[in-house]
Design a protein around this nucleic acid. Sequence first.
RNA 1: GACCCUAUCGUCUAGCGGUUAGGACACUGCCCUUUCACGGCGGUGGCACGGGUUCGAUUCCCGUUAGGGUCGCCA
Length: 452
Amino acid sequence: MGEQVMAATRVRFAPSPTGYLHIGGARTALFNWLYARHTGGVFVLRIEDTDAARNSLEATEVILSGLRWLGLDWDEGPVSPDAATSGKGDYGPYFQSQRGEIYKRRIAELKDKGLAYEAEGAIKFRMPREPIVIPDLVVGDVRRELTDREALEPDFVIVRSDGQPVFHLVNVIDDLEMKITHVIRGEDHLTNTAKHIALFRAFGVEPPKYAHIPLILNPNGSKMSKRDVGASLQTYVDEGCVPEAVVNYLCLLGWSPKENREKLALADTVKLFDLPQVLRHNARFDLDKLRWLEAEYLRELPEDRFCQLGEQALRKAGVDLTRFSPEYIHAALATCKGKIKRFADLAGYAGFYFAQEIVIPAEAAVEFTPEALARLRKFREALAALPEFKAAAIEAALKAVAVALGVKAGLLVHPTRLAVTGATAGPSLYHLLEVLSKESVLRRIDAVLARG
RNA sequence: GACCCUAUCGUCUAGCGGUUAGGACACUGCCCUUUCACGGCGGUGGCACGGGUUCGAUUCCCGUUAGGGUCGCCA
């Protein structure tokens, strides 16, 4: 009796370098990665750069950096975007542009078997005329009949007249050679899978297991393409999104952890994720829900990481931080944690900390009535007299002035905030005043009092 | 045109023959509060339609409709 060695799961993500990583592609990568990690298998990254004209180093780098940003590490595949460098893993090369010899050998094999033939300079594959059943782990058995056009000519081109093998062929050869056990990909590939199954059989091997996952659609239900809002992963990177939030959101499109769970750590998803629970219907992309998750993750970020990412976001937004100490920047950002919903909002929210001069919008300046300015002057005096410029002391001073004037604290809070930050909303007033320092606060208040 | 997949609040979803059809986002009312945000308590809103099967269908079957995908010498 031969010993049966349990073969490890081998899945792959096989993107074509087009210059951007589609959000749907990112989710396909994620589901593959999740399945590999869930089963203790291997996640392979393969670059399908057959179309030499439109591939480039930069286009491949977009994919590698996108996956890294999401935290999806691959066990086999390229280590650099340069196809000339060898990747990691025993089944390379992992760039299709480097696998020409393998394809040649396999094409010859098909010809030898009489399953492929020349036609007008190209090579065609003899496709079976009978319906093919596609066993799909998500959809179930799909019996694929020939369409009317296919019935006219069931055979299809596998090598172009210029000698280049086409997607269907190389995809199958690579999956075969790389010993892929599960093909997890978008549902747009479902009907073409009949071709792939026929090809596998032509090579004399059983096809891998298939799992076709539903597509991500625009909010209006149309297909999400390059130009659509949110379609490119890069926009999330550029906006300073928290990658964990994006990953969490992507998990929720087309898969459900059940039990009414929405927010879940990747480690939990790895435990829970499995193919049979993948949904069968397409999902529409909901930016609002992504934003909500983002805000949730942002709020829970450890302070150090929040400040680090926040500083990045400020720099990206063009805020000049060179005049400020790391301690000041850290203290300023710390007052924003738990308040902002996304880093893209940070410059607008905390820019006053780093501004030379506070500009007060005309529509807000109407708040500075003579009475308000008089109260502000009183509070300014109280602040000037403070021996220690700390939040608690500032709050006590403000409350005391309010009592003395017989007004609600809010009547002091609002004009002060406006004078010092130029905004009607922002971090806790007492804390932001402390961070700004007495000198800076008094200067800003004086500027308002001076204009009268 | 043909072939394939799908169908629960606006959106993401739970449900797998008997439920007041549950949750989340969004919207909204109230409370909390120095602003904003958070948080707490409510509210609006859904089984696409028509036939079956069944004592009983959101749930099973068929059809219709709608949406999506595919049928390339694109990937």
